[in-house]
């Protein structure tokens, strides 16, 4: 097992290097560069922009910029410097990590806690009204774009006279010490992103859970168990659900990385203090090392997620052996 994990990690190294080269190429292919945005500013002379380029190393050939960046990471663990914020990139990303994980984590919690029981119920009550309703909701859920859902929810809340839209807190609680009122305020805000971001995922898991369970309930060993006269609940929960959930477990590992990088657009619409909008700004401004580090970080999370998924699968399914 340890051997396997170690090998997977070693394998990540060349992969990450290739990813970084590709990412850097993509970023460098963008027309314009950091500094272009300053021309219209009355305080900035073209010489200043030239100066800035030289200091940021933007006047060097692309491969040199890349190598300098990699060298920094390898020798000092330094992921570069944000042009816009004048601070180490790693620090900036770390600062935004907390809320990103909170939003992603609670979305995962929300989707799984709802989706799994509903999926099981739907499957065990196939073709009931309940099943039809949730099948339909599931279909709708995967068909509505996240950003559209966010817009709709914000519009609905506003038109009903609500005020808790956008962000995670009312402004008076930002930076305030934790209190019950603050938690309540958070809850008043966070449900919109949870639904906007989570609905599609929930619908997907729900459909998958229902499908898997139905497949398994049709299989012979379940029939056998029933024929043996086992209690229906035991059949379903002890045998069928356990097996039906396995394929979902592999999805679970990928949830966090997907949510971190996959919710950029809704996070922009909803004004969340997470990494998505931050990355988008950096991309627009061509703050290259920030963009690079974020991309690398997301890719790394994807790789880890994959590994975790495989490990989890091996853990719950003794038939799978890692070697």
């Amino acid at each position: 097992m340890m051997n396997y994990i170690l090998r997977r990690f070693l394998y990540m190294i060349p992969l990450m290097i290739l990813i970084s080269i590709l990412s850097f190429t993509v970023i460098k292919l963008q027309p314009g560069e950091f500094g272009s945005q300053y021309f219209s500013n009355p305080r900035v002379s073209p010489e200043t922009v030239e100066n800035l380029r030289a200091r940021l190393g933007l006047d060097q050939p692309t491969y040199m910029q890349y190598l300098t960046w990699v060298k920094g990471i390898v020798t000092e663990g330094d992921f570069g410097y944000s042009f816009a914020y004048k601070r180490p990139v790693a620090e900036l990303i770390w600062e935004r990590m907390g809320w990103t994980v909170v939003v992603a984590g609670s979305t995962i919690l929300f989707t799984w806690v709802l989706a799994i029981p509903i999926g099981i119920f739907s499957a065990t009550h196939k073709y009931s009204i309940f099943d039809y309703v949730f099948t339909f909701i599931g279909f709708i859920g995967i068909s509505v774009p996240n950003f559209f859902m966010a817009l709709l929810l914000m519009y609905l809340v506003l038109s009903m006279g609500g005020t808790e839209v956008g962000g995670l807190f009312s402004q008076q609680y930002i930076g305030a010490p934790w209190s019950i009122a603050k938690v309540i305020d958070l809850l008043k805000h966070i449900w919109i992103p949870l639904i906007a971001i989570g609905t599609a995922g929930m619908a997907g898991i729900l459909r998958q859970m229902r499908g898997n369970l139905l497949d398994i309930l049709g299989e012979q060993y379940v029939q056998t168990a029933r024929a043996k006269g086992l209690n229906e609940n035991v059949v379903i929960y002890k045998h069928a659900v356990r097996n039906a959930i396995n394929p979902l477990i592999s999805m679970f590992g990928m949830q966090l990385p997907k949510l971190i990088s996959g919710t950029i657009i809704s996070a922009i619409v909803l004004n969340l203090p997470t990494m998505g909008p931050f990355f988008y700004d950096a991309l627009i401004n061509q703050d290259q090392y920030l963009v690079m580090t974020f991309l690398m970080f997301s890719a790394f999370m994807m790789l880890i997620g994959n590994l975790i998924a495989d490990l989890l699968l091996a853990l719950v399914d003794p038939r799978i052996r890692l070697d």
Partner: peptide, 21 residues
């Protein structure tokens, strides 16, 4: 004097209507 940072102008508008800004 409090500055809140709200990127989306629509959210700014909403927060103003809510009396937060």
């Amino acid at each position: 004097l409090v500055y809140v940072f709200v990127q989306n102008s629509e959210v700014q508008l909403a927060q103003f209507q809510a009396g937060e800004i």
